[in-house]
């Protein structure tokens, strides 16, 4: 029996114990099984996948609509969403408004309306999603790489290495992260790449601490001791045992981190420190729309820019919500012990 098999079967045995009549299943298939019954998490996953796909396909969609994210048309500013009138038109309720809107927009259907410069809100939201999601995901990957590497190193080697790494982490952690980011972004010019780097470089400390703690636990487990005793090299032990055992906690954290980072991006935009226009992000779109909250039509008194608030606000909230729910759902699914209590 190789060491790797020993590891796998340890878990299988553990999990199979209370349900001996079934055939033993692996940890991951069990997690998948329990996830399949978790409707909330599934919906969240579906939503996120849709958002990611739409954002990735932004240029295709923009091509289909026939307009780019930064194409202005000032004569058609603050157009209300075309969607409602279109449905009414199709249903034969209001034969006038939709064609009028279409004519005014030069034949482009602005499904979610236009902003102050007549830019298409729908296309901008998709492009904004690319940047917002892209930054959050890229930064999270950076966080994971740094956090897992450093955390595993510290936890596995312990001693002086651990002391030094922990001093380093404690130092950074005791500077409040939001200030660190504010200082850095207020003083350096943020663009998508630098912002990703800042978020990644100042975001991995918590992950590293978490992984380190987990590694301490795992290191003491029997199969790792066994691997050591048969002379397996450190790197191999880490890659084959320690990291896979920390994987659940890593995945759960990653989902939540992405959500937090989307919020951080929007918060920085509010403070004027995020990605700068004309590049669209959900954060800076929402922040700009906030300014137009009180914009009203001089004759009718109607609020004319509320549709700009709905899109980015809803997308940020729902995406972050989905990510948190996925994190929660995964935590439950990946924790084999949870199955015992029902």
């Amino acid at each position: 029996m190789t060491v790797a098999q020993a590891h796998g079967s340890t878990h299988a045995n553990l999990a199979a114990e209370p349900q001996l009549q079934r055939k033993p299943r692996t940890y991951w298939s069990m997690a998948l099984h329990s996830l399949r019954r978790d409707l909330v998490t599934l919906i969240a996953l579906g939503f996120l996948a849709t958002m990611a796909a739409l954002s990735l396909l932004a240029p295709v969609v923009a091509g289909a609509v026939g307009i780019g994210p930064n194409d202005t048309n000032p004569d058609n500013a603050f157009q209300q969403p075309y969607l409602g009138p279109y449905i009414q038109w199709r249903a034969g309720q209001d034969p006038l408004r939709a064609p009028l809107l279409l004519e005014k927009a030069g034949g482009v259907a602005h499904w979610l309306g236009t902003d102050q410069l007549g830019r298409d809100q729908f296309v901008r939201l998709l492009y904004g999603g690319r940047v917002s999601l892209g930054i959050a995901i890229a930064a999270t990957i950076l966080i994971l790489i740094l956090g897992v590497t450093v955390g595993t190193t510290a936890g596995f080697f312990g001693g002086v290495v651990d002391d030094f790494i922990m001093w380093f982490i404690n130092t950074f952690v005791s500077i409040p992260g939001i200030y660190l980011l504010i200082i850095v972004t207020a003083m350096f010019k943020p663009n998508p790449i630098t912002l990703t780097l800042f978020l990644g470089l100042f975001g991995w400390f918590g992950t590293a601490r978490l992984i380190r703690g987990n590694v301490f636990k795992v290191r003491a487990l029997d199969f790792v001791l066994a691997a050591r005793s048969v002379g397996t090299r450190n790197a191999r032990i880490m890659l084959q045992h320690v990291i896979p055992n920390s994987l659940p906690i890593i995945i759960v954290n990653a989902a939540i981190d992405v959500g937090i980072l989307i919020l951080v991006e929007s918060a920085l935009s509010f403070l004027g420190l995020g990605i700068q226009p004309p590049t669209a992000t959900w954060g800076n779109m929402l922040n700009r729309a906030n300014n137009f909250l009180f914009l009203r039509d001089p004759e009718s008194g109607a609020f004319v820019a509320l549709h700009l608030l709905v899109g980015p606000g809803l997308l940020i909230t729902l995406t972050v919500l989905a990510l948190y729910l996925i994190g929660d759902g995964l935590r439950d699914a990946l924790d084999p012990m949870m199955k015992n209590i029902r």
């Binding site: 930064n70 194409d71 202005t72 000032p74 102050q116 410069l117 830019r119 700068q276 226009p277 004309p278 700009r288 300014n291």
Partner: peptide, 12 residues
């Protein structure tokens, strides 16, 4: 924000 909008328009 005014100048940011102006910039986007001038650019276009």
């Amino acid at each position: 924000t005014t100048r940011e909008d102006l910039g986007a328009l001038v650019q276009d």
